[in-house]
């Protein structure tokens, strides 16, 4: 257990946590209510949506790839699950969440097929998959907001709480703990990182690299779908393009968390911090009623500053 933790926690991955604490302290000077329990638990609840997406993205980025199909896997899962509940059929309502997860896994497998078998760069293939899903959604809903509603289970997953902690946060952390165990303790986790470092060498050591790629993309798809289901529960509906604003913050959360975009190095502990940091940053900037323009500028500048700090620290250490 201790070994698992010490391997998952690195100095890089602590950075966003320090950043988040700094944000809370700085924010509390302007708005004391930032320090209230209500505000902070609400942030944990909201961070879970971005966090789940970033969890899936971390797995794919560790592999040395990237998944740009997140927005429409999320939207598709939300549309699918709310439509199934919207039929009013109790059996379909119960199956809504599993069906959405299966949908995410299926898209993940399609992503993996293009990347592992056809050897298409993941950045382009997942982009193409994203636009096909967009097309399917438009065809299916006629371009209007899809009809349907969230089941009580989906609402509870997004807005419920257990012992004062938001259920969405607990689900997110549970997924992260499970996946961290997989990453650190199973062969799959080792293969994943070693493919990120050097795919050829991993293949030559007898690892079936395509199956690792398939599994990684399937996990990422399921994480995106889970995020979509919970967002639909949060908003009590699905809507077109609900995933689009999440794509870039997702990648930013992973990278701020110390995971190398080239693959191989990093982990989920940092990603949790990254998602918390970005959620807090967005929230505090909007609490301060800063306009859209400056919010974008400050957001970009702070991400750049954190990245520069990370590389400068490494440069000094060498």
């Amino acid at each position: 257990m201790i070994r698992t933790v010490s391997r998952a926690v690195t100095l890089d991955s602590l950075m966003p946590y320090l950043g988040a604490v700094a944000l809370i302290i700085a924010g509390s000077f302007f708005f004391p209510q930032v320090l209230s329990v209500d505000y902070l638990t609400q942030q944990l609840q909201i961070a879970a949506f971005l966090g789940l997406l970033a969890t899936g993205a971390t797995i794919v980025i560790l592999l040395g790839h990237i998944d740009l199909s997140v927005p429409w896997v999320l939207t598709g899962a939300a549309i699918l699950s709310t439509a199934m509940v919207g039929t009013g059929n109790p059996v379909l309502s119960v199956l809504a969440v599993p069906a959405a997860l299966a949908f995410g896994a299926l898209i993940g497998l399609i992503n993996g097929m293009g990347v592992a078998i056809l050897r298409i760069p993941s950045m382009v293939w997942t982009l193409a998959v994203n636009s096909m899903l967009l097309g399917l959604a438009v065809l299916n809903t006629g371009g209007f907001n899809p009809r349907g509603e969230s089941s009580p289970l989906m609402v509870a997953m997004a807005s419920g709480d257990v012992l004062g902690l938001p259920l969405s946060f607990l689900i997110w952390i549970a997924v992260c703990v499970g996946l961290t165990w997989v990453l650190v303790r199973t062969p799959f986790g080792r293969y994943l990182r070693s493919i990120g470092f050097n795919e050829k060498a991993t293949f030559l050591s007898g690892v079936s690299t395509p199956s690792v790629v398939f599994a990684a993309f399937a996990i990422a798809g399921m994480c995106s779908a889970l995020g979509g289901v919970m967002l639909a529960g949060y908003a009590n509906q699905a809507y077109q393009s609900m995933g689009d604003p999440f794509l870039l913050p997702t990648i930013a959360a992973v990278v701020i968390g110390g995971t190398s975009i080239l693959g191989g190095r990093g982990g989920l502990f940092g990603t949790i911090g990254g998602a918390l940091f970005i959620t807090l940053l967005t929230s505090i900037l909007s609490v301060m009623q800063i306009g859209d323009a400056w919010r974008n500028i400050i957001f970009g500048a702070i991400i750049l500053a954190m990245l520069l700090f990370q590389t400068l620290r490494k440069g000094a250490a060498q």
């Binding site: 990648i251 974008n296 500028i297 991400i303 990245l307």
Partner: peptide
């Protein structure tokens, strides 16, 4: 000079440029 991957750098600067455009 910052030795950061282009994909991450341009992701962050894109946000800055869009912010300037919105200004």
């Amino acid at each position: 000079f910052g030795r950061i991957q282009p994909i991450v750098v341009t992701l962050a600067t894109a946000s800055i440029f869009v912010g300037l455009a919105l200004l």
